[in-house]
């Protein structure tokens, strides 16, 4: 496969897995939690690096999941002690992120991990960083990790599809029929952290938020069915990844920045043109009773 094809494959995988996870983030109203986790994952990665002194995939994944869970637990803990949910998120993620940045600036320094890379990602290096796989041969490490993560995300979503649906739309009902809501919450938070860290190499910590939230929000404007929303959201993710890459090549600029911008374009299009919830349809079609909330 050529260099460009690898990059496009990696970017599409990011779009796919982020799009799937994003749907549940939106429905559970935890969009800002994704923002928080994408920041604190940095601390997990830095800590994993300081402990093991190597930047290999599995250590980073474990560190990131721990950091993501720590964020979720801390936010929950502060919230239970009377801090507003929003303020709790704000306190936790900025503090943990600051510690991560300070560790990089003072301890890790010039090594393989720098702040620029962590925030913006460096997808251009992905095809060169290969590992040897049995049967397949050389395969870029980041792409391989993304494939594994996508498989895990798909597996977890499909296995507990009904449970996710109920806990997302009606947590009260879910609890009353015996679905372990708390466990599902933390399982979901782990999925968010894993996806974030897998996408980290490609698009960086901040742009992953765009990939998580915006395609799902766009899909939310087109449909009322969860299954269709999942399909639409992941396709939007892939489309934005590819369009973003093309824009970046055209303007010779940051690939991750362009991808985030492209998700914005997809949303703008949906916001204007979606048949049910779009701006234009409001002028074309008179308001009928079924449109009223």
């Amino acid at each position: 496969m050529s260099y460009t094809a690898w990059i496009l494959l990696t970017a599409s995988l990011v779009g796919l897995s982020c799009g799937l996870i994003g749907v549940f983030l939106i429905l559970r109203r935890m969009a800002m939690m994704a923002d928080a986790i994408s920041h604190t994952v940095l601390l997990g990665i830095v800590t994993a690096y300081l402990v093991t002194r190597e930047l290999s995939g599995i250590h980073m994944l474990i560190g990131a999941v721990l950091a993501g869970l720590l964020t979720a637990v801390l936010v929950q803990w502060f919230h239970a002690r009377g801090v507003q949910q929003e303020a709790a998120i704000g306190v936790v993620f900025t503090s943990l992120f600051a510690i991560g940045v300070i560790l990089i600036a003072t301890k890790v320094g010039n090594a393989h991990l720098d702040i620029q890379h962590a925030l913006m990602g460096e997808i251009t290096f992905v095809p060169w960083n290969v590992i040897e796989l049995p049967w397949i041969g050389e395969f870029p490490e980041a792409t391989f990790i993304l494939l594994v993560v996508l498989a895990v995300v798909l597996l977890v979503i499909l296995t507990f599809y009904k449970e996710w649906k109920i806990t997302s739309f009606d947590p009260g009902l879910a609890a009353s029929i015996g679905i372990p809501v708390v466990f599902m919450h933390y399982l979901f938070m782990s999925l968010v952290s894993v996806t974030t860290v897998a996408a980290f190499d490609a698009v960086g910590a901040i742009m992953v938020v765009a990939m998580l939230i915006t395609p799902a929000a766009s899909a939310y404007l087109w449909t009322d069915r969860l299954s269709i929303m999942l399909v639409l959201s992941s396709s939007f993710g892939v489309i934005s990844a590819i369009v973003g890459y093309l824009i970046a090549v055209w303007l010779d600029t940051s690939i991750s920045g362009s991808m985030a911008f492209a998700t914005g374009l997809v949303f703008l299009f949906s916001f204007l043109c979606s048949p049910k919830h779009g701006m234009l349809s409001r002028y074309i079609r008179p308001v009928s009773a079924s449109d009223l909330p």
Partner: peptide, 18 residues
């Protein structure tokens, strides 16, 4: 919260591009 997350990340992405 979704709107905030979108504006935050898309604007930031645009900023990084520029």
């Amino acid at each position: 919260d979704t709107a905030m997350g979108m504006i935050l990340s898309v604007f930031f992405g645009l900023g990084i591009m520029m």
